[in-house]
Simulated scan of single mutants.
Amino acid sequence: MPESQQRDLAKLVATLLGNAAPLRWFSAVLMLAPLLLLWGGKLQGWSELLSALLMVLFGLGGQYFGLRVALDAKLFAALAGEHSCERLDHSMQQLGWLKEEQAGRSMLQRAQGAQALLKRLFLCFAGQAAALMLLLVWRFFL
């Protein structure tokens, strides 16, 4: 892939990942809400506790993937600028963040990896939303 296309792809991925930042914050709110309910003694029964636990666990996953997505957004923005994949790989290897066999990936492979992180972030948020729905159903309809 020509270098100009690599930079265009990196810019596109950086923009896409950067737009996922609100999802991480919504996930944090959905993670803290059941903790506040638990602290206030508002959760009743094992079903509500289970829903709250699921919301917190999916929230922790969402925070992890959200941080990874935010980091990747900055890395892809750097790749869209003056930095090269080789320089990035070298720096990440020096920090111990990248194994030697992972170095040298193409921009397309990097973009696909970033897309997989974004999907995991979305799945964690969807899991939180589903657990919230369960909590509301158990609280108000059962």
Rank of each mutant, 00 (worst) to 15 (best):
Q128R: 06
A114N: 10
R105W: 02
L117E: 11
K119R: 14
L98I: 00
E101W: 12
A129L: 14
A126I: 10
M133L: 14
S106E: 04
M107H: 05
Q112N: 11
A130G: 02
F125W: 14
R105P: 00
A129P: 01
L108R: 13
A129D: 02
L123N: 04
C124Q: 08
G127C: 02
L98F: 01
A103E: 11
Q109K: 09
S106V: 07
L121F: 06
L132V: 08
A111Q: 06
L117G: 08
Q102S: 14
L117S: 12
R105S: 02
Q112M: 13
L132Q: 06
L118R: 15
A130D: 00
G127E: 00
L123C: 05
A131N: 04
L98M: 01
K99T: 08
A114P: 07
L117H: 15
A131D: 00
A103T: 13
W97E: 11
F122A: 15
A114H: 14
L108Y: 08
R105I: 00
L108C: 06
Q112Y: 12
Q102I: 04
L117T: 09
Q115T: 14
L123F: 08
A114F: 08
L108D: 08
Q115C: 10
R120C: 13
A103G: 11
G104I: 04
L121M: 12
W97N: 08
M107N: 03
L123Y: 10
R120L: 15
A116H: 10
L123Q: 07
A129I: 07
C124K: 12
R110Q: 00
L118T: 12
Q102F: 12
Q115V: 10
C124A: 08
L132H: 06
S106W: 02
S106A: 07
G113K: 07
G127V: 05
F125T: 07
A116R: 15
L98S: 01
M133Y: 14
M107V: 03
L98Q: 01
G104E: 01
Q115D: 06
A130C: 03
K119E: 03
L118E: 02
L98V: 00
A116K: 13
A130F: 10
F125G: 05
A111C: 07
L132G: 08
A130W: 11
A103I: 12
Q128T: 06
K119Y: 07
A129T: 13
Q112D: 10
G113C: 01
L118M: 13
Q102Y: 14
Q109L: 07
Q128M: 03
E100N: 09
Q115K: 14
A130H: 04
A126W: 13
F122N: 13
A116S: 10
